[in-house]
Simulated assay, not measured.
Amino acid sequence: MRRDVFQAIADPVRRDIIELLANEMLTVNEVAEHFEISRPAVSKHLKILKECGIIVINKQGREQFCQIQPRSLVPAFLWIEQYQNLWEEKLDSFENYLMKLQTKKKQDE
């Protein structure tokens, strides 16, 4: 099955794994220690991240080290970025509405 970056970031556990690996390279066991799910479940999430190209797993001796591939997250970033202005406009509009309500409430007091 062909997977993409959006499938990878769709799951909160995988997003947490991405966040962990963004800070440092960890072994599979070190990644698993951060979660209250089974080791096989963590391995499944890592496998999906690997299939999506978000991480690489390098074997060194008996250990398997997981390393983030940040460039693979660019498509998701670009997709989200196109909506930034829309959300900023919506939030600004909401802020203005709340300010008007506050002003009206003060005038009524």
Rank of each mutant, 00 (worst) to 15 (best):
R3S: 09
R3F: 12
F6T: 05
A8Q: 01
A10W: 09
A10H: 11
D11A: 14
P12A: 03
P12L: 01
I17T: 03
L21V: 01
L21H: 04
A22T: 10
N23P: 00
N23Q: 15
E24C: 03
E24I: 01
L26M: 06
V28A: 02
V28K: 08
N29W: 10
N29R: 07
A32W: 08
H34Q: 14
H34A: 15
E36I: 07
E36V: 03
P40K: 00
P40T: 01
K44P: 00
H45W: 05
L46W: 03
L46F: 01
L46C: 01
I48M: 07
I48P: 03
I48Q: 02
C52V: 01
C52H: 05
G53S: 06
G53P: 06
I55H: 00
I57F: 00
I57Q: 10
N58D: 07
N58R: 08
K59G: 02
K59E: 13
G61N: 02
R62S: 13
R62T: 12
E63R: 09
Q64E: 09
F65G: 06
C66K: 03
Q67C: 09
I68N: 04
R71F: 10
R71C: 02
L73I: 01
V74C: 10
P75Y: 05
A76M: 02
L78I: 12
L78D: 14
I80S: 13
I80N: 08
Y83C: 03
N85P: 09
L86S: 13
L86T: 13
W87H: 08
E88W: 07
E88V: 11
E89Q: 15
E89W: 05
K90N: 11
L91D: 04
S93E: 07
S93H: 04
F94K: 12
E95N: 13
Y97M: 12
K100T: 00
K100N: 14
K100M: 10
L101V: 04
L101E: 07
T103D: 12
K105N: 09
K105M: 13
Q107W: 08
D108L: 14
D108W: 14
E109S: 14
E109A: 12
